[in-house]
């Protein structure tokens, strides 16, 4: 398990003008509960994958919102779909549906851009 505590994240620069947010709209439509996430982190604290590596759903969410798809693709495949996160989420987010749909959308997006 990761040590508990705080650390400072690496700085990020986002260029919103160059980002494509169409995928986010699709996800909002396909997995309606996606918008309910408040980033509380309950999912990450129970996550099976997070026991070994720094994986967390709200991080994925953030990457997705910021259209950082390359980085996100690596992240998403760390999930084991075990389902613990769905059962602990206080906001009833369909976390696994969200993860799978993100993967599908990114894959489709890649194919479209090729």
């Amino acid at each position: 398990m990761k040590d508990f505590g705080y650390s400072i994240s690496k700085g990020r620069t986002l260029n919103y003008d160059n980002s494509d947010f169409s995928l986010k709209k699709t996800l909002e439509h396909d997995v309606v509960s996606y918008c309910r996430c408040i980033g509380c982190g309950a999912c990450a604290s129970t996550c099976s994958a997070a026991k070994f590596t720094d994986f967390s759903i709200f991080k994925c969410n953030m990457l997705f919102r910021n259209a950082k798809y390359d980085e996100l693709e690596q992240e998403l495949s760390k999930c084991m779909l075990c389902g613990k996160c769905t059962l602990v989420c206080p906001r009833g987010v369909n976390t696994r549906g969200m993860i799978l749909e993100m993967r599908n959308l990114i894959e489709k997006n890649k194919n479209n851009n090729e």
Binding site: C82, G92, N94, L100
Partner: peptide, 8 residues
Amino acid sequence: LANTQLEL
């Protein structure tokens, strides 16, 4: 768990 489409 087989269903990933169903909402709460």
